[in-house]
Structures are given as C-alpha cells and as structure tokens.
C-alpha cells in the first residue's frame, strides 16, 4: 500500500471521501483507539487536564480523552488541530466535544505559553515532513511545530507523538527537532520487527511532575 503522505499533502489526501472512509473503517478505528490508550498511559495524567490533539482528524482520539472516567483521572478537555477541513467536518458530524481548529502545525502552535497540561498526536507528525513549495523545508516546519508545542505546554507538561517515519533519516530528523526545541525526548518502540511496529516519541518539558489537580 502506498504511504498516503508520499502521494498528496494531507489537506488534499483527506478529502470528503477518504475522510469518511478513514473514520468508518473499524480496523483503523481500533488501531487508532489502541494507540490513543497507549499514548494516554504514557502521559500518566492523574487529574482532568487540558490536552492539545495535533492532527485530531475526525476526533477519534478526542472522544477517548473525553470519556476517561474520574477514577482514571478524567475526563479531559481537548483542543484539536487538523489541516484537513474534510476530517474536521466529520468531527463536527460526530459531535466532537473538543474545540476544532483548521490549522497547519508546521506553521506553529497558536496558543499562549503554558496553555496545555499535555499533548497527543496520533499518526500525524510525519506529515510535517511534506513540503509543498520551495520556500519552506521539512526542518523548518518541524522546528516551528516543536518549538511552538514546547512553549504551549506548561512546565512539567508532557507530549506523546505516535508517528510513522518513512525511514531512519526521517525518524532522526523528527527526534532531533524535538530535542532542539528543548524537550527531554525518548523514543519508545512497541512490537519491533512485527507488522504492528509503533513508535511513540515521549516528550517532557523540564521541571516538576505532571500535576493537573
């Protein structure tokens, strides 16, 4: 199967048809849910938190964040960014609880410093390596995203980005940009060598434990 990010930019790839397909495919839904739960466990939130979802798509991850029970530290309130208007349209139809922004995370993160307790991103960060015009580079877009994300998280905040790098070079490019932005960064790899291999970039903003409460 061709990688979608090799064919078209995400705002064109996720048109109305592909957005609806993505959201109704039960296989994709269950993988997405599994990855969201994994990311949530890595965030280790102990109280209802304000979370940024980068590449929120149709709100599949968000609906999980909104339904974390009180006994597990939820429910959380989230704000989602996505570059695909079609995906956000599906999120509206699904009555997503979070606020939705049509935005390109490669242009930055438009929130004031210390806004969020945490951030998640499921299967989105590799899209930032796509460059549409000669005026911007993948490095420039990754730097703007990670430095914007770093500033928008509060001290002690944490982010987990699950992503699909095309190759080791792209993986290093993404991890390097996160570290340059100031994050403490660790790469966690589940199911190495299997078809279900998943990479989670776990990012911390120095100072203090996650409090949220």
């Amino acid at each position: 199967m061709p990688r979608p990010e090799d064919s078209l930019p995400p705002d064109l790839y996720y048109n109305d048809t592909t957005s609806a397909q993505y959201t109704t495919s039960s296989r994709i839904q269950s993988i997405q849910a599994q990855m969201t739960h994994r990311a949530l466990s890595l965030l280790n939130l102990s109280a209802p938190s304000l979370i940024l979802d980068v590449g929120c798509g149709s709100g599949l991850s968000g609906s999980i964040l909104s339904s974390v029970p009180g006994s597990a530290g939820g429910p959380h309130t989230w704000i989602g960014l996505d570059i695909s208007a079609s995906m956000l349209g599906v999120a509206l139809e699904r009555e997503a609880e979070g606020d939705l922004f049509l935005a390109d995370a490669g242009q930055g993160v438009p929130f004031r410093p210390g806004t969020f307790d945490a951030a998640i991103s499921i299967s989105a960060v590799q899209w930032l390596c796509n460059v549409e015009s000669g005026t911007e580079s993948a490095e420039g877009r990754l730097n703007r995203f990670f430095s914007g994300l770093y500033a928008a998280l509060r001290r002690g905040g944490r982010a987990v980005c699950q992503f699909y790098p095309r190759d080791d070079r792209q993986k290093d490019l993404i991890c390097g940009a996160a570290k340059r932005a100031g994050f403490g960064a660790g790469l966690l790899e589940d199911g190495v060598g299997t078809k279900q291999e998943k990479k989670y970039l776990v990012l911390t903003v120095g100072g203090g434990e996650i409090m949220g409460g």
Partner: peptide, 8 residues
C-alpha cells in the same frame, strides 16, 4: 460552525 480557520 464552531471551527476556527487558523491556516495562514
């Protein structure tokens, strides 16, 4: 419809 357009 509640969605803010922040594309520059």
């Amino acid at each position: 419809e509640g969605i803010a357009n922040f594309l520059l």
